[in-house]
Design a protein around this nucleic acid. Structure first.
Lengths: 115, 115
DNA sequence: GCAAAATGCAACCAACAGGTTGCAGTTTCT
DNA sequence: AGAAACTGCAACCTGTTGGTTGCATTTTGC
């Protein structure tokens, strides 16, 4: 038996737009790129690689945290951030649905033209 | 022989942030959901399903068009929009890289602990 | 030819995003 | 204890976003 789930693209249980929006910024994309390598980093460490202020980086990290892409672990004096892969998996599934919907439409069109 | 490409997440040739940002809005997500079903729609048709103004929908369509997610085909009096799957494929590949980087880090950690 | 339909363009507005500076509060280290 | 490091919070500023209204323009259909 197949999975009992809706295949329509419009179906969603938790909003994906905030996650997309959180990734819609070059600074945040590079933060994610650094964090998804496995090692958690503190705010100061993440700031050192950038031309921005520590507070700017902090704001970006809050955005990523609110989107669930990153988890905050405060350890003593410093607060480290580590990557959380779940939202990325959700986006992957969603984009698979979009692509699948499109391919399906194309194949329907093809069989219509041929048949 | 394997593919000769950079596997690091940071590597990019064309910016992905604008595409993510274009998808970071519920209205635009539902527009994409409608258009990726295969059939192109005019602005008026797309407006009928929404509570927003025609001009608001138009602006959202421009954002999607600038991100490459949608293509404008003006036919006579009306201008139809149709989905373009390429940017979505790019995003899928990128998210695959992110997930892969993370899984790789996890397995390195695991073998370090075990070994 | 004329009315209706579909769109484009511009002005305008409130709210938000991205960034800065300044200062106060904790931890750590010697 | 005291200095240095790390962070949090708040105010502030500028540019962009999301949305509206109003009007002009082009196409279509009768």
């Amino acid at each position: 038996m197949l999975h009992k789930r809706r295949s329509r693209v419009a179906a969603r249980r938790q909003p994906r737009a905030p996650v997309f929006a959180a990734l819609g910024d070059e600074t945040r994309l590079s933060l994610v790129a650094k964090l998804c390598a496995g090692q958690p980093y503190s705010i100061s460490q993440l700031t050192k690689g950038s031309k921005l202020t520590r507070q700017a980086i902090t704001k970006h990290l809050r955005v990523l945290e609110n989107a669930g892409l990153v988890r905050n672990i405060h350890a003593g004096r410093e607060s480290r951030f580590e990557f959380d892969p779940k939202p990325v998996e959700e986006l992957r599934k969603y984009l698979d649905l979009v692509s699948g919907q499109w391919d399906q439409a194309l194949s329907r069109l093809k069989s219509f033209v041929e048949g």
